[in-house]
Amino acid sequence: MSPAEEGARTRNGMRWRTDDLLDAAVLVFGESGYHGATMNAITQRSTATKATYYSRFGSKDDLYTACLHREAERMRVHLVTAYESADVLSVSEQLEGDMLAFFHHAATNPAGFMLLFGPEAAGPAARIRQTLLDTIRDEVARRVRRTLDARHPHASASADMIAAMIIGVAVHGTYQAVVVERTSPERAGAMASSFVIAALRNMEPGAIVYTTGSTAIE
């Protein structure tokens, strides 16, 4: 048996799956933030030993980064799957489905949401969060671009900006609804999607950035 495998045992000889160890760490990091979380609190939550965690992850920093990566990947898979399944729907239905998927994921995994979008603004959290947001923005921009092409020729230069605004509504709306007010994800998601759809329908043509060739004009 390797040292890592040996270290993954608790005092009673039980082996721990990596996801089980990360589950407990995500709860503590999500509740307390990186600086407030301690290895004692994490091991108490999981009942695994510190030796188990250190042999598997190396340090508190590495454990924190592993939690961030896992939660970002889980959210990415959840949202991209929802986006792909909604591709056959109308644009309004797609945007509503996108928003509900975001709110539902946060409501069913609030600790993971707080880990990614809570008050920690620097270090690995910021980098991993931005990579996730860029991926989500690109997916949303893809369908926004289709809508702009149909209604406003040469306006696709605005797709990324509009998508970023939609994602901003999702992130901050979710924080307010799920974390602060504990509103149901269905009601909050419906409100957010209605807000976004109304904004897109009533957008002034003069506010959109157009492109002619490689030159952007307003």
Rank of each mutant, 00 (worst) to 15 (best):
E5F: 02
E6Y: 01
R11N: 06
N12R: 14
G13C: 04
M14H: 15
D19N: 09
L22R: 01
A25L: 04
F29L: 00
S32N: 06
G33H: 08
G36K: 06
A37W: 03
T38W: 03
N40E: 11
R45M: 05
S46M: 00
S46P: 05
S46N: 02
A48Q: 04
K50S: 00
K50E: 01
A51R: 10
T52F: 00
Y53D: 03
Y54Q: 07
S55N: 07
R56S: 07
F57Q: 03
G58V: 04
S59V: 09
D62H: 07
Y64W: 08
Y64V: 02
T65G: 01
E71M: 14
E71I: 09
E73C: 09
R74S: 11
T81K: 13
E84K: 12
S90N: 06
S92H: 12
S92D: 15
E93P: 08
Q94E: 08
E96L: 15
F103G: 04
H104P: 07
H105T: 05
T108P: 00
F113C: 01
M114E: 08
M114L: 13
L115N: 00
G118A: 15
P119G: 08
E120H: 06
A121Y: 14
A122C: 07
P124Q: 03
R127W: 03
I128E: 03
R129M: 13
R129C: 09
L133A: 12
T135S: 10
T135R: 12
I136R: 10
R137A: 11
R137G: 14
E139S: 15
R145W: 06
D149Y: 09
H152F: 15
A155N: 10
A155E: 01
A155H: 09
A159H: 11
A159C: 10
D160N: 12
D160W: 09
M161G: 08
M161K: 14
I162Y: 14
A164P: 11
A164M: 14
M165K: 10
M165T: 12
G168E: 11
A170K: 10
V171H: 06
V180E: 10
V180G: 01
E181P: 01
E181K: 08
E181A: 08
R182H: 09
T183G: 03
P185K: 02
P185C: 05
G189P: 14
A192H: 12
A192Q: 11
S194I: 04
S194Q: 12
V196R: 05
V196W: 05
I197W: 12
A198E: 09
A199Q: 06
A199Y: 05
E204N: 15
I208R: 11
V209T: 10
V209L: 07
Y210Q: 06
T211D: 11
